[in-house]
Nucleic acid binder design. Structure first.
Lengths: 220, 220
DNA sequence: TAGATTGTTAATCGATTAACAATC
DNA sequence: TAGATTGTTAATCGATTAACAATC
């Protein structure tokens, strides 16, 4: 009754990704073991083991007393909850360096993301081969979205034109935007926007290095 | 006394970045106004205005009753706290598509990050021009780090070789690593690692689209 | 069985929000 | 001044941790 619309919190999604990540790595590396304990997972990510068990319980994974969790069950459940067991089609808009990197990155398929086209407004770029794709003119977006059932636009255009491109993408039927243009965007309610704040990483680096220096000076 | 080592939480850093971002944008857009209220900031980021005031107070910005906060004071304080008023030098390791995108991205200087070299292990790439830089052989890393006082390595190499490269970078004197290789890394205590989890963004997109579909089905 | 590990309830902690006095 | 906004204390909420019984 209550579970009808329980939305996983951002923090939980993030933790689940960490579990997925580390359990997957451990399996690859691991010498024949196919189970993992909550304590092991917790140590890898520097957190409490109780929380790991709670999180896993919340997505329906049951552990085995004295043994731990079966790695495949953990991975399977996370895949299911996060939707990695389905395929989502995406297009890249903006065939600059970052767009080209995104379009040619192979790691996305593992998460069910399939990049099926790349677009640019610049006529000089249209027709150019980029990995296994050929750059198409932005005007063709609606046709591709319709024809290939595309849901996601990966936005790698300059910030100045980002909002205009988003408006166009939305009118072309795009349902979600993965925003790599460093500017904020507006879109209708039904369009989901995920903004990738590269500068947050930068802030952490910068803040950390600054603090280190200050501490060094205090010690000196 | 207590303020000696107060470390800003990850969440606070992230909120500060949002404030910085939005207040900066508003200034650029704004028609002559040079103040901003906590309520305005809060609405932009969908949060409580009290928290905005608390956060700003915590980094030493004082507001003006009836008026709000002076935008320049807010920006200045955040720059100072996060260390954007200093310059940090970085090198890119791995001259693939992503590395090339990072090396040529102009937006970093705004945050005090200066990219001063790009490296690759592949002899075929060495010597190739990439924006205003020329790809150098990885062996030269230590000399560059020493000579140009480089602190940060932006890691854009394939995951298989990432750990090896990190070990080498650390031995060359690198103090912080911005990791874009999708694998976890180990480094000595004194080396700060920021792992950029691209897949977390993907998880959010995927989860959101999945939920939407389920809700659609329930309605139908 | 004994013992390791899970699962879950209760306690704690910290972060967020509400309330309201202080200020210009 | 009146009124809008800050600053801060107290109340609430949710997330994390501790404790421990249940399990194999």
């Amino acid at each position: 009754v209550k579970s009808k619309n329980k939305h996983l919190s951002h923090a939980l999604l993030e933790r689940l990704m960490h579990y997925y990540y580390f359990v997957g790595e451990q399996i690859l590396a691991g010498g024949g073991r196919d189970t993992v304990t909550s304590t092991e997972i917790a140590q890898l990510i520097h957190m409490d083991d109780t929380l790991v068990r709670k999180d896993l319980a919340s997505i329906g994974v049951r552990g085995y007393p004295r043994v731990g969790f079966k790695a495949t069950e953990v991975l399977e459940a996370i895949r299911r909850v996060l939707g990695f067991d389905r395929t989502y089609r995406a297009v890249v808009i903006g065939a600059g360096r970052l767009g080209s990197a995104m379009a040619s990155y192979r790691g996305f398929t593992k998460y069910g993301l399939e990049i099926c086209s790349i677009f640019d407004k610049d006529p000089a770029k249209v027709g150019v081969r980029m990995g296994h794709l050929v750059i198409q003119p932005l005007e063709d977006l609606a046709i591709v979205v319709e024809g290939k059932k595309v849901q996601i636009a990966i936005l790698t255009v300059p910030p100045e034109v980002a909002q205009k491109v988003v408006d166009f993408a939305v009118s072309s039927g795009i349902q979600a935007i993965w925003n790599f243009a460093s500017t904020s965007l507006k879109a209708p309610e039904h369009v989901f926007i995920r903004h990738e704040h590269i500068s947050i990483g930068l802030a952490e680096l910068s803040y950390h290095l600054k603090s280190e220096q200050r501490e060094d000076r205090q010690q000196a």
